[in-house]
Nucleic acid binder design. Sequence first.
DNA 1: GTGAAAGCGCTAACAT
DNA 2: ATGTTAGCGCTTTCAC
Lengths: 344, 344
Amino acid sequence: VSPTIKDVAKKAGVALSTVSLVLNDRPNVAPETKARVRRAIEELNYHPRRSAQTLASHQTGNIGFILTDDHFSHAEPFYTKIFLGTEFESRDHNFYVLLTTVPNTFRPALDTPRFLRERNVDGVVLAGRVPRGLCKVIHRLDLPHVYVDFAPPGRRGNVVLMDNRHGALLAMQHLFELGHRRIAFIGGELSHPSIRDRFDGYKNALAEAGIGFEANLVHLDRDYTTVREGYRATAALFEKGVSFTALFAANDAMAIGAMQYLKEHGLTIPREISIVGYDDVEASEHSDPPLTTVHVEKEGMGAIAIRRLVEMIRTKKKLVGTLYTPVELVVRQSTAPVVPQNSK
Amino acid sequence: VSPTIKDVAKKAGVALSTVSLVLNDRPNVAPETKARVRRAIEELNYHPRRSAQTLASHQTGNIGFILTDDHFSHAEPFYTKIFLGTEFESRDHNFYVLLTTVPNTFRPALDTPRFLRERNVDGVVLAGRVPRGLCKVIHRLDLPHVYVDFAPPGRRGNVVLMDNRHGALLAMQHLFELGHRRIAFIGGELSHPSIRDRFDGYKNALAEAGIGFEANLVHLDRDYTTVREGYRATAALFEKGVSFTALFAANDAMAIGAMQYLKEHGLTIPREISIVGYDDVEASEHSDPPLTTVHVEKEGMGAIAIRRLVEMIRTKKKLVGTLYTPVELVVRQSTAPVVPQNSK
DNA sequence: GTGAAAGCGCTAACAT
DNA sequence: ATGTTAGCGCTTTCAC
């Protein structure tokens, strides 16, 4: 049916192996020969078969992308966008991305992704919270891998993060400029590095501004950082009876949940309470009011991860380190100057 | 490194080919032999290499999933969920899903997905609006394929749709029950079958209820059905000066855009205007007010598509037909009884 | 029912 | 710089 390397060789009048060298951009091919082979490839509309290449070279040309069920089913477009970023970038490097999800109650024997067992990937990207068991499996496999928006236990390996501390600082400075001093923080489990770093940023910003940290103004007991948790966290804050003029949420989803609670309880945003989120997901632009938040290059993170991974695959070297993507404050309508005489 | 079929054969004391037969669940293997082979596989923790199987059998074990850039970058979780549905279902059939996007200005020579050129998939799923050029490419390839939430030109082939007419009817009946008679409709380009069917459902419902159709109450000039278009469409309706007590949007995104416009212009939802959407995307639950909408089994559609596709791949038969997934009305807080004396 | 052997399309030594 | 050749790990006739 479709032409093989043999056909190309015949047409170009060279040996199989020469065609192979050209295909893989190897040195030691005369420019003139190379051109001839290229022409033959062109004319035959030849495309090498992945499976044959894989079988012979032991390189699959695939990259695995692993995400927990939760991250995907909560439908946060956040990780979806990171995935997309990996997809686009992989194209340029001639890799396919195989996406799979694992339950967050990961059991190695049952839940290890198929492409890992079958050795069907040359490397993997792990995004968001990764179950400990999976980290271990990955390490044992000795497979190039990079974490995105997550730091594995021990902080070893390749990690792509956004600049969470800086973003949090930007958000807080914005609130300070608007005159806010009593600023609440809601977040989830601190085991997620992004959440922890944002929280750290919150505390550092307070310190820099000479404002004392108040544990009462913080709520972060839940695991996941969803709209629902944002709602609950805000409720918890109010039940404690603390007063504040602004609220910084660990991410947009929680910010949206917070806005829900506040609106339901008759508070006007931003007149009575200012809200700042983090991530700049699609929904933030369309929330009511549109959310002031910290923008993150989600696709960019995916692209960076792939570039790193491809480098490791190509050079067969283990790289270790943390790469950061920049963040940026996006001011919309959920923040406003504090009204002086308003103390609840 | 990892065991091959040879190791299994040796361990089980049979020939290579016998192991292959067992692997592929072929008949004509003595039960006793089969058991022995199975044990050997188990003990060696053997997994066949995809690439070797592919090379020898010309079956890749991959399924392609194609989506336009727009559908993905608009970040409607709608198609993402369909994709997820295909992913999960594929697992059970031992297929991988390769996702790719194509520009909506599709040019065959440049934008044909790599996995198509490289013949790296056994079949493809095409979701949402598919550029005409791509349809042609697919047909020429003579590759098993199924469309999801889209009907190709000529309506031939396999199509998975939701019951849009019925869903629209449910939505309209709900509004009728609340006393609404003047109901506007906003939608996008009718070339998308779902949009057209929903519009048809709208018209049929009016007819059934004995209410005359008014072209003035309808706005559907734009291509895409996004939040922005919903906003614009609603604005257009108001500029025409028509009055209505309820609005049925072709999808949730447009409904959310409509709510934005209405709220900005001082209208209270649902007191002054009731809104119904379609799709039941994540955002609808968290909109303000939460949106009454028609729920669609998005993952289910993906799963159905895969089952059909796998059947075609396995049997090598071309199937033709349209499969429907059920829909269901979800009543939230964006709809309320019409207030009698309120005429704009 | 089971085994031997050819070959899928490519890569990578090695030889020239 | 180019050609020859031996696999990569599996499927699939075809004998037995």
